[in-house]
């Protein structure tokens, strides 16, 4: 009596598996790794008012910021080794970015500055104006008509 191959065609004894197959076996195991909980990455704890913060329980030797959902306040609650709680209350102000922004000089703002050449030309014009004014004053004192 002849026995056929009882193993499926794709069967290969362990030890002769191709690297690709090993990857396929390992992949589901990697996917099953537990994901870190969101709350551990985002430890924002909300409480309702100071009474909510006072009644929030902490393990010994723990510090936890508690955010007030009713006002702009953070309660920094801590416990010592014996579990004795203490709390610091912080009132915060949200900065209005539109009013506190400092203007940053850009290339367009450079047009507001005067170059050395422009300044020298302006100086020349002023000197000429002064000279012409002096000349006209001198002409007036001589009784001659003003040139201008």
């Amino acid at each position: 009596m002849a026995y056929g191959n009882i193993f499926p065609a794709s069967y290969q004894p362990l030890g002769y598996q191709q690297p690709q197959q090993m990857q396929q076996i390992q992949q589901p195991q990697m996917m099953q790794q537990p994901q870190p909980q969101l709350s551990q990455n985002n430890p924002m704890v909300w409480v309702q008012g100071e009474t909510g913060a006072k009644s929030y329980l902490l393990a010994p030797n723990t510090t936890l910021p508690l955010w007030d959902s009713e006002s702009q306040t953070i309660y920094l609650k801590s416990t010592d080794a014996s579990g004795m709680p203490s709390m610091k209350i912080i009132d915060y102000v949200i900065r209005d970015t539109t009013t506190t922004q400092v203007p940053i000089p850009t290339e367009n703002n450079n047009n507001n500055f005067v170059t050395h050449e422009e300044l020298k030309e302006f100086e020349k014009k002023i000197i000429e104006e002064v000279k012409s004014h002096e000349q006209s004053v001198a002409d007036d004192s001589d009784g001659k008509p003003n040139k201008k």
Partner: peptide
């Protein structure tokens, strides 16, 4: 508080439960 003090539940577990 007793469970927290004795480490029978962690602070994270408590925070999660509150949330």
């Amino acid at each position: 508080q007793h469970l927290l003090n004795n480490g029978q539940i962690s602070q994270d577990q408590y925070n999660n439960a509150i949330k």
